[in-house]
Design a protein around this nucleic acid. Structure first.
Lengths: 197, 197
DNA sequence: CCGGTTATGTACGCTGGCGTACCGACCGTT
DNA sequence: AACGGTCGGTACGCCAGCGTACATAACCGG
């Protein structure tokens, strides 16, 4: 747990490996993942936008290393180096697109599509075909029942796209999985590329 | 239609009245509204973040007046006036929270809840209890069938919360409607207040 | 007043995902 | 070797919302 909703942001994090989830707390339902952050971005963009506190929760979903920078330091750096400032602002815009896509995705795509998408994005971020992930966890991220994940994951496994075993998942056929995933995977990936370009 | 996906942004818009929808284009499904913009904000925040082109479509949903400012002019203004810059960046952050909330909302809340929320938000933005809105339109915004809207709207009308007649809707019992709406209404409203504060 | 057009109401069968529950498999511990 | 804990598989009834289709009602121009 990196950020708790409502607290001040003391540090921003630049993930090197692993993955962070941004989670919206709901009082009348289970929490929902709003987006994920990997080595392409940073956690704590609000600081750069001049907002000191978080509205969402941030969880370290898949363990990894990250550069932890004091909020004050990054702010000074943006003031000092226009290039850094521009880059971070561009990232903020990309984040908005990503969030919007996620909203649309949640409205229209099936669990199977979203599940495939999530796995692919995670794969890209941890830069490995295999990573630790229980179905319970995945269910929370997708905002569905654990049983539903079991069914969907079972189907993907039967189709030879992924492998599963007690908290470890392995992506076997990336291309095949891309076929199952919704377009949102490509959309988000492309947007993120324009930031680093 | 104010922005078309992929085009360059020539002007930003500060709505005075009326309402603008940000819409995510989907190739494999109907388009989905990602968020709405009213007099509390502006359309074209990407410009301030240093991105010249749009990823989403922007539609004028409910007719109204807006200040139309050339992209170059607003950029110069942010450079010249730090206060303006800070304000706009804070708005960008609020927008992100709003988008995230929308994503979560789409995942968890019922049509009835989201419908009530949408009506309330629109009411706030047009600053009037009555405004033009066909069920067809509302259905597109919520990303559901027109028939579903009819059912839900019928229920709300029967409960004495709203009034309907051929493309005009009237909010009768605001409080009651708030009771039906999901928490997202309050969350977003509160976040937007922190921007102007 | 008529006919076309737009907006709303309603019906019916279908299905994806839900809530809940139970069971078996595997795993580290004692 | 038995045991409690975690993880995954499966079942069953349920319901919100879907796709489709058709019917009514209000409005508008001629």
């Amino acid at each position: 747990m990196l950020y708790t909703a409502g607290r001040d942001i003391t540090h921003v994090y630049f993930p090197v490996s692993g993955m962070i989830s941004l989670v919206v707390k709901m009082t009348d339902a289970d929490d929902v993942e709003a987006t994920t952050i990997g080595n392409e971005g940073l956690l704590g963009i609000a600081v750069i936008l001049g907002v000191a506190s978080t509205t969402m929760e941030a969880l370290c979903q898949i363990a990894g290393r990250a550069l932890r920078v004091p909020a004050r330091a990054i702010l000074e750096e943006t003031r000092r180096t226009p290039r850094v400032n521009r880059l971070l602002l561009r990232y903020a815009e990309a984040m908005m697109v990503q969030l919007a896509q996620h909203a649309a995705c949640n409205r229209t795509h099936s669990i199977e599509q979203r599940c495939a998408r999530w796995l692919l994005m995670t794969r890209d971020r941890v830069a490995s075909d295999e990573f630790p992930l229980t179905q319970q966890f995945l269910a929370q991220m997708l905002g569905v029942r654990r049983a539903t994940v079991t069914t969907v994951a079972g189907a993907l496994q039967k189709a030879g796209l992924i492998g599963y075993s007690r908290g470890r998942i392995r992506i076997v056929d990336e291309r095949g999985l891309e076929g199952v995933a919704c377009e949102c995977y490509d959309v988000v990936r492309r947007v993120m590329k324009t930031v680093t370009a």
